[in-house]
Structures are given as structure tokens and as C-alpha cells.
């Protein structure tokens, strides 16, 4: 059986109108995997959702429309890694609380969804900007 090996690097403006494009790429990746035993419909929807939520969150905190985001998606065997690089103000990943349905807060569910769908989520500041990194075993 062919082993999955995909690497993508995409640069997009920090505008929400491009979320659909990135989400669709995630869906297509799910369909193109040569070796996946799970439900591809679910994987396609979830990859779309994770990418949409990740970029949406980074754009909210990017602070400027003039900067580009760099999205790196890597699949090696059954290991999926998604990195979103930005040059914005950044945010405190650990400071995002778990949403309480009773308080009906309209924010904070994006990170919660990503955390649920991925195995690990990390956000760090580097010399070259911020990196949101999400990993999952497929």
C-alpha cells in the first residue's frame, strides 16, 4: 500500500474571505489520502473545520490586513501536522477558557473545537513570528 506523503505550503492574506479556500484544500487532502481506514467524510469535514477555525482565530489576532499568513500542511504516513505562521499580535492559547453553554458567550469555541479534533495544539512566539501548530495521528 502507498504511504501518504504530502507537503503543502500556502500563503494567503489575513482576510476571512480566504477561509473557504483553505478549508476546501483540507477537504481535498482527506479525499486524496492513499492510505486511510477511517470515515473520509468525517475526516474531510474535520480538516475543513480545523483549518477554518485556526485561520479565523489567527486573523482575529493578526492586527493588520496587510500581512500574509503562511499555512504549512504535512502528512507523513499517518502523522498530520498543520502550522499557521503569522506576524500579528498573537494570543494566549492557555487563556482561552472552555466554553460554558450556560453563559452563551459568543467567543472561544474555535480553539475548543480544534483541541477536540486534534491530538495536540501549541501556539508559540518565535523570532520570525507566531506559530500555531496542530498535530494528529490519522
Amino acid at each position: 500500500m502507498t504511504r501518504n506523503r504530502i507537503k503543502l505550503e500556502i500563503e494567503i492574506p489575513t482576510q476571512t474571505r480566504y477561509l473557504g479556500l483553505i478549508g476546501n484544500i483540507g477537504e481535498q487532502l482527506a479525499w486524496d489520502l492513499s492510505d486511510y481506514g477511517g470515515d473520509r467524510d468525517v475526516l474531510a469535514y474535520n480538516l475543513n473545520l480545523v483549518l477554518t477555525e485556526a485561520l479565523s482565530n489567527v486573523i482575529k489576532h493578526a492586527g493588520s490586513d496587510n500581512q500574509a499568513l503562511r499555512v504549512c500542511i504535512s502528512i507523513e504516513g499517518n502523522s498530520l501536522s498543520i502550522q499557521v505562521h503569522d506576524q500579528g499580535l498573537g494570543f494566549d492559547l492557555e487563556g482561552v477558557p472552555c466554553p460554558d453553554p450556560e453563559d452563551l458567550c459568543e467567543r472561544g469555541r474555535g480553539i475548543f473545537i480544534i483541541r477536540h479534533l486534534m491530538d495536540s495544539v501549541d501556539y508559540r512566539k518565535t523570532d520570525k513570528g507566531n506559530v500555531l501548530e496542530m498535530k494528529k495521528k490519522l
Binding site: L49, C105, I113
Partner: peptide
């Protein structure tokens, strides 16, 4: 066909 947390916030807003 597709809804994310921003879409959910639209529903929450109308509900409130």
C-alpha cells in the same frame, strides 16, 4: 453545508 464557531455565534446571538 458547513458551519464553524463563527456561524454558531450567529445562532447564539439571535437566541440571546
Amino acid at each position: 453545508q458547513f458551519i464553524d464557531s463563527s456561524g454558531l455565534s450567529v445562532l447564539i446571538s439571535a437566541f440571546k
